[in-house]
């Protein structure tokens, strides 16, 4: 069982949360019509074995979206931040290559 420390509610069981997927992909500007950039953002994944940046929603709690860094081998949760500004949150971790 994962225990996720919600920045608003404290440490809770994983069953209170809904998974929101990979947080590393950032969508292009909506005016950007480049097919490759959209394909990359919507479909391609780094799929790391190790630290993974991901969204969770505290669905059965404060309903806030969170930005979590978790190890995909050990399942250890490294950090949890509010996801209001994923780009800003992403900047606090090592940037994605390419």
């Amino acid at each position: 069982m994962l225990r996720i420390t919600c920045p608003f509610c404290g440490e809770r069981d994983q069953v209170e949360f809904a998974y929101g997927g990979d947080a590393a992909s950032v969508f292009p500007d909506l005016a950007d019509a480049d097919l490759d950039r959209w394909t990359d953002a919507v479909f391609m994944r780094d799929n790391p074995r190790g630290d993974h940046r991901e969204f969770w929603q505290h669905q059965h709690g404060c309903r806030q979206w969170l930005y979590v860094v978790r190890d995909t081998v050990t399942h250890e949760i490294k950090s949890t931040l509010p996801a209001r500004e994923p780009r800003r949150a992403a900047a606090t971790h090592e940037g994605r290559k390419g």
Binding site: L2, V15, D22, T72, V73, H75
Partner: peptide, 13 residues
């Protein structure tokens, strides 16, 4: 299980 993982072991929920 519902979240990305390479660990070959399952979770309780």
């Amino acid at each position: 299980d519902g979240y990305n993982s390479y660990g070959q072991r399952g979770d309780l929920p």
